[in-house]
Design a binder for these strands. Structure first.
Lengths: 131, 131
DNA sequence: CTGGATGCAAATGTTTTGCAGCATG
DNA sequence: CATGCTGCAAAACATTTGCATCCAG
């Protein structure tokens, strides 16, 4: 019964394959285009919505203008470079201690965290390469 | 020469006075209304823009739907409660050590940070008060 | 047939800009 | 006067929804 959903799996493939840590809807659509698929924006929107509901994809609060998503299994903290705008990632580890302290001192039960660090990446810190 | 800008200072007053940690443009306009001023949304937008440019106000990436702002001097980390939606704040301290480690291990020079913790606040953890 | 995914178009909500008017120095 | 803030209106932009269609079981 019903039609089989194909776009969500393609979106997942794009996110797993690309050299990007987090994706906007437009970037996902562009990535799908590279696979020869050109779905409607609303279809991408709904596909990501389903992936998010099923826990495969995670919403990331990175930029207040557009939504960003990443694969849920790949959670990491984000380093946004003021120079080139690239988004690096580092695995989250130290945050755990911070979370503990918040629970103890504020009575706040943390279930999810997001760390955003802005600054200059190694490349942009090298002189002669500033954008 | 020129007209003296009045709205930016009023916006600043609202942010300094209210019991809120960060403000959307709409919330700022509402706050201004409580002071008897009802400027146009675009005026609030430009006022915040000026305050941000002059370093008085800081943009906070909290929700991807609307922009949030806080007073630059009052930076803190944010605790967003999944229950009531309230935004608490804790002063940032431990983040410094984390920042150090990122610089050392990733070569990333951090100039700004933002920590977002989601979970349940003390009140919402108490049974019988879940929204 | 039936249920669900998809495309198209339009609604929504917020941010952003263009332009004319006006107040202030 | 000349500068630059302000309001009004509209544009721009991304998200979200309604509806008709199409496809697989």
């Amino acid at each position: 019964m019903g039609r089989r959903a194909v776009v969500p799996e393609q979106v997942r493939a794009v996110m797993a394959g690309g050299g990007r840590h987090c994706w906007t809807l437009a970037e996902l659509q562009e990535g799908l285009g590279a696979l020869g698929v050109v779905p409607d924006p609303s279809t991408v929107f709904r596909a990501v919505g389903r992936l998010e509901a099923s826990g495969v994809v995670r919403r990331v609060e990175l930029d207040e203008r557009r939504a960003h998503f990443e694969l849920a299994g790949e959670h990491h903290e984000h380093l946004v470079c003021d120079g080139c705008g690239e988004v690096e990632a580092v695995p989250c580890a130290l945050v755990v201690t911070w979370v503990e302290e918040v629970r103890r001192e504020c009575g706040f039960e943390v279930s999810d965290h997001e760390v955003l660090l802005r600054g200059r990446c190694r490349r942009c810190r090298r002189p002669g390469q500033q954008p």
